[in-house]
Design a protein around this nucleic acid. Structure first.
Length: 195
DNA sequence: CGGGTTTGACCAGCGC
DNA sequence: GCGCTGGTCAAACCCG
């Protein structure tokens, strides 16, 4: 991992701008930049509006999402009926399950990434809180929460049941803070560094 | 000692 | 109602 400048994994599009380094990162045998984007909400539009600087990301998003329609039916995420939003004040907290009474528009995006590594640094700090065996899949699913203060973004990481060389990473929610990497890789910080 | 990980238990939803 | 499954909790554990 240390031969990468920045992150080798597909970026969280909500913060895609700091990941421009990804697109110039050398490819390697153990990683191939995002192959699929799978989603079950209309998040692509929101994503693009969220950040204007991730043109590189937007391009790949379009091709991948169209490809996704043909290939993701089985690999698609399921069991994500419950939804949460970090900004939703009407969340009912039940034991183990977050419920919302309001119509929310959570940001949920799944990447299908070819990688030998399951743990991929996307610039955020994640704390693992669970691991479950998934039915019809030999590979367990890992659950992570963002360690950011007050940030309830979650992600799920599991290997593609059909092709274990792919990793499915599902981001769930929107970060309420910047990536710790932003300070190093954002254009503004570069400007500052050059002065 | 603080923060992250592991892992068994618990809970809700769903189908039968 | 019951069993299965997915998602989360939290105590115990690990590690720097």
């Amino acid at each position: 991992m240390d031969y990468y400048f920045g992150n080798p994994n597909p970026p969280n599009p909500y913060y895609g701008h700091q990941y421009s380094a990804v697109n110039i990162a050398p490819s390697s045998d153990n990683f191939m930049v995002s192959d699929y984007l799978m989603l079950d909400d209309d998040d692509v539009v929101n994503v693009d509006h969220h950040h204007h600087q991730d043109s590189n990301w937007s391009q790949s998003t379009e091709t991948e999402s169209s490809e996704n329609k043909a290939g993701s039916s089985d690999a698609n995420i399921h069991g994500f009926g419950d939804e949460t939003s970090p900004n939703n004040n009407n969340i009912k907290r039940k034991k183990g399950i977050m419920k919302s009474t309001a119509e929310v528009s959570p940001r949920r995006i799944t990447f299908r990434t070819r990688s030998q590594l399951e743990i991929m640094d996307d610039g955020y700090k994640w704390r693992k809180y669970g691991k479950k065996a998934v039915k019809n899949s030999p590979n367990p699913r890992n659950y992570y929460k963002c360690s950011g203060e007050g940030c309830s973004v979650k992600k799920r990481v599991e290997r593609d049941r059909e092709d274990s060389s792919y990793v499915l990473t599902t981001y769930d929610g929107v970060h309420n803070h910047e990536s710790p990497c932003t300070a190093y890789y954002s254009p503004m910080s570069l400007v500052g560094a050059l002065q």
